[in-house]
C-alpha cells in the first residue's frame, strides 16, 4: 500500500504566505483531522519554484499537526488556471488566495477563501 495514491483533502494556496494565511490553513487542518481520510495535500503556487522561504511559515502548520498525513507540494503560479480547469467534481478543493489582482476563474468545484 502506498500513500500518495490515497484520498487527500486538497488545500491550495496562492500568493504570499502570511500569518493570517497560515491561520486559515490550520483551521482547515483542524476540520480535516476529524474526518475519515486523514490526509491533506497542501499545494503552494509560487512565483519561483524552489524558493523555500514559504517553508518558514509552513513550519507552524506542521508543528500543529500530529494526526494527519500531510503532503506539501509546490507548483508554478502559471499552472493554477489549468489546475482549476482540471479539478474534478467532488474534489472539494479549498483555494486560499492572498494576491491582489489575481483573477481566479469561478469554478463551483473550488471554494475560494480570500486572505
Amino acid at each position: 500500500m502506498t500513500i500518495l495514491g490515497q484520498r487527500f483533502y486538497d488545500v491550495w494556496y496562492v500568493g504570499e504566505l502570511s500569518e493570517e494565511g497560515v491561520d486559515r490553513i490550520i483551521e482547515y487542518l483542524l476540520d480535516y483531522s476529524c474526518r475519515a481520510a486523514g490526509r491533506v495535500r497542501l499545494r503552494f503556487y509560487l512565483q519561483n519554484i524552489g524558493d523555500l522561504t514559504y517553508m518558514a511559515y509552513v513550519r507552524r502548520i506542521l508543528l500543529q499537526n500530529t494526526s494527519l498525513s500531510i503532503v506539501i507540494e509546490e507548483k508554478s503560479i502559471q499552472d493554477l488556471e489549468k489546475d482549476i480547469e482540471l479539478a474534478k467534481d467532488g474534489d472539494g478543493i479549498v483555494l486560499i488566495k492572498n494576491m491582489v489582482g489575481l483573477e481566479v476563474p469561478v469554478n463551483e468545484k473550488i471554494k475560494i477563501i480570500e486572505v
Binding site: I3, L4, G38, M55, N65, S69, I70, V71
Partner: peptide, 10 residues
Amino acid sequence: PRYVFVGPRD
C-alpha cells in the same frame, strides 16, 4: 512533493 509527514494511519 517538498515535504511529507506520515500520519498514524499511514
